[in-house]
Design a binder for these strands. Structure first.
Lengths: 132, 132
DNA sequence: CGGTATCCTGCGGGATACTG
DNA sequence: CAGTATCCCGCAGGATACCG
């Protein structure tokens, strides 16, 4: 015997919740997205990234890069030049993010338009006082 | 004369970045998603939501609901019963989130699978030492 | 150049108590 | 019942300095 219908639904529900949270977690924080977008221009070295992002401190950059490595969006490559050269570049797998990011971007654009429009039309009649 | 090509690209780029951030902002935080999922079961009253979410405090719940109202995902309805009854329910507009959430969920599921699989195959050979 | 090590701060979120 | 008011804490993220 399997679980009852309501239980299955509840489980399915919290399962999706966790999946969504996983996805959000990956993109979350102040620097993940700027970092990915920056690396889409091509491989870069630590200090190059730091400059292109503006005000990020090395500690944070280091941590963010490690996170992205763990999630396999980024590879750290060590070249035995003298002195040693290190680059970070996006993996092919990182391309799987594009669909998600596109979807988020499209939705984000529409949402902002919508909010701006509604500020004008003063649709704050939203608070209905439904008399019975 | 318009801006140079590189500038346009940069602007387009930061524009999408902001759009994505808008979208993420809307779903972010500990409670937004659980709250939306809970309200998908139908309209609920303040205390009902509180119970169904488990450990959320009234202050936080109040704040989250206001956020969702501002973004027009939720309507607060006041019924003039005695005593007054108040419900919160999802708006039709909140359905526009479904595509985004589905996309995030699908990606999240695959990503987790992938990570689990790769932990096993011990693919930490990812750190290449490319000699020149 | 490519990072660590320490210290510090703001703020998202919580505990608890109170109110119309 | 449907919230506000106060106080509080952990932790992401930052400033600054230092290291191989």
């Amino acid at each position: 015997m399997g679980p009852r219908k309501e239980d299955r639904n509840k489980e399915t529900c919290t399962a999706s919740l966790n999946a969504v949270k996983d996805a959000l977690y990956v993109l979350n924080g102040k620097w993940k997205l700027p970092l990915i977008l920056s690396l889409q221009e091509g491989p870069q070295r630590f200090n190059e990234i730091q400059k292109s992002l503006g005000e990020i401190t090395p500690k944070i950059l280091s941590k963010e890069l490690k996170d992205l490595e763990l999630n396999e969006f980024v590879v750290r490559k060590v070249f035995s030049t003298t002195p040693v050269t290190i680059t970070y570049e996006l993996t092919p797998y990182s391309e799987s993010l594009e669909r998600v990011i596109d979807e988020l971007r499209d939705w984000g654009l529409k949402h902002r338009e919508r909010l701006v429009k509604n500020r004008r039309t003063e649709s704050v009649a939203a608070e209905i006082t439904a008399s019975l």
